[in-house]
């Protein structure tokens, strides 16, 4: 399962197309719409989470772009709640990029945000649930 949070900017020409229905039916993707507006000049903005097979996701994205829709990925921000984190190291089992690692010999668990790819594997692997996913909410206002 591949999941991305995207912002879609529709040109007036695409506003009348059943784009989301097509994403679901033709590309077998799940769409969770967080925001959808049509502005006075008929251009539209949608913020949604798209999930599905990676291959289908890329085909779906190709379709969106072919319709003249400007697709942008919303920066996901993974944050660690240092009040909750008790520095065990369980997250280091799943982190694929080495953003979460143990500093020896102190055995402190370090989170290097620059290395984080926002894969979210640590979110449920953390026993204290100290890792949080934050989206750039400014688009939702």
């Amino acid at each position: 399962m591949y999941t991305k949070m995207l912002s879609l900017r529709f040109p007036p020409s695409a506003v009348n197309e059943p784009i989301i229905t097509n994403l679901i039916r033709k590309f077998d993707l799940e769409c969770n719409i967080l925001k959808a507006v049509i502005y006075p000049r008929k251009e539209g903005l949608a913020v949604m989470e798209i999930s599905g097979h990676r291959k289908n996701y890329h085909r779906g994205l190709h379709y969106l772009r072919s319709m003249g829709i400007k697709v942008e990925s919303i920066a996901e921000d993974i944050k660690r709640d240092d009040e909750k984190c008790y520095q065990c190291g369980a997250c280091t089992a799943v982190c694929p990029t080495g953003a979460l690692y143990i500093e020896r010999p102190a055995m402190a668990v370090v989170f290097d945000k620059d290395k984080c790819s926002a894969c979210e594997l640590c979110v449920v692997a953390c026993p204290a649930r100290a890792m949080e996913v934050k989206f750039n909410k400014s688009l939702l206002d």
Partner: peptide, 11 residues
């Protein structure tokens, strides 16, 4: 093999 502690050494 990469080792993973579940017990917090710092705590």
């Amino acid at each position: 093999i990469h080792t993973v502690p579940l017990s917090s050494h710092t705590r």
